[in-house]
């Protein structure tokens, strides 16, 4: 990717969910789902975000569209600050940013046809007349590899992969600049995954799209991303170009994560880093570096000071005290 223009800039994004308890439902704590995450997305690239369940990657994705209202931080999209937009302006802005959801079964209304689902965004934003919208719907169906008669069908008559194609067609309908794909292939069979991924890549070239691609599958992310960010317990621990990250991971968590990827060569001699313990609760994250409870290289400073997210050359960002020495 040669384009260097920044399309999306997320700075110090935080999303805390209050925990209510007691007789009067007072706030007794917060779940820090996303805690101080910053990254940028360049125009035309795919930024992969990986992390295990509950690390806040989906919340980050939803916060970009303000489907979850961020607690703090700034989200700039094409030089516009999204967090300040009024409800109505944000609604209009959603024409530019669309989302593809994880579960292709839950993300389509079971009582509306596939065609209606694709036409809906056009209606909402008042694009075209009835006939033009229908034509556009048929065109979109063929773009995502379905036939126009599929528009008459209901979601339960499609397979998972076909439904995800409908979800993608719906996202494409308003010609967005940015698509946030929240685990778009993790609910699909492996054989279907590659089809959908290839479709997304083709569409990216065709429509000059920018993706934020959220997944927990390292090989999927490696396949589709230009740059990859790794999240752990609500924070971003490492962010770098894809090959740089996979070949030279800096953060101990990324190293452990990558060492868990199976290698299809039984004779390969490799070292696996097995982490001990569980992910701490985001309601009560550890002091200092959130990873210190499980880090094999933990130092005293890790338990007290939170490491900052620094550039260690060639736009390779990481948050670790080991590197700060």
């Amino acid at each position: 990717m040669t384009a260097v223009e920044t399309l999306l800039e997320v700075k110090h994004l935080k999303k805390y969910y209050p925990i209510h308890g007691g007789v009067f439902g007072r706030k007794i704590g917060e779940v820090k789902a996303v805690d101080d995450v910053s990254f940028t997305v360049r125009k035309g690239e795919t930024l992969g975000i990986v992390g295990e369940s509950g690390c806040g990657k989906s919340t980050t994705g939803r916060s970009i569209l303000r489907l979850e209202e961020p607690t703090a931080g700034s989200i700039r999209f094409a030089d516009e600050e999204l967090t300040n937009l009024s409800g109505e302006n944000m609604r209009r802005m959603r024409r530019e940013i669309q989302m593809v959801f994880q579960d292709p079964f839950a993300s389509l209304n079971p009582r509306r046809t596939a065609g209606a689902a694709i036409i809906e965004p056009l209606e909402v934003h008042g694009l075209g007349n009835r006939q033009e919208r229908r034509d556009k719907m048929k065109e979109l169906l063929s773009v995502v590899g379905l036939d126009s008669y599929h528009g008459e069908r209901y979601p339960h008559q499609f397979s998972g992969g076909q439904r995800q194609r409908i979800g993608i067609a719906r996202a494409l309908a308003v010609q967005p600049k940015l698509i946030v794909a929240d685990e778009p292939v993790s609910a699909l069979d492996v054989s279907i995954q590659s089809q959908v991924l290839n479709l997304m890549e083709d569409l990216q070239d065709q429509f000059n799209l920018t993706y934020v691609f959220i997944a927990h599958d390292l090989s999927v992310v490696r396949h589709i991303s230009d740059r990859v960010g790794v999240m752990y317990l609500g924070g971003m621990v490492e962010l770098a170009d894809r090959d740089e990250l996979y070949d030279h991971p800096l953060h101990p968590y990324t190293q452990a994560l990558l060492s868990a990827v199976p290698v299809p060569d039984p004779t390969a001699n490799r070292e696996r880093i097995i982490l001990s313990g569980d992910v701490p609760s985001p309601a009560d994250p550890p002091q200092g570096c959130t990873f210190h409870t499980r880090c094999p290289h933990v130092m005293d400073v890790c338990r007290e000071v939170r490491p900052s997210f620094n550039n260690y050359g060639g736009n390779h960002f990481a948050a670790c005290h080991l590197l700060e020495k």
Binding site: G161, Q195, N198, Y246
Partner: peptide
């Protein structure tokens, strides 16, 4: 998922 670090060879894109 029993996959390689790269994706398996891509099948032709249009859905069967």
């Amino acid at each position: 998922m029993s996959a390689n670090t790269t994706m398996p060879t891509p099948t032709p894109s249009p859905v069967p």
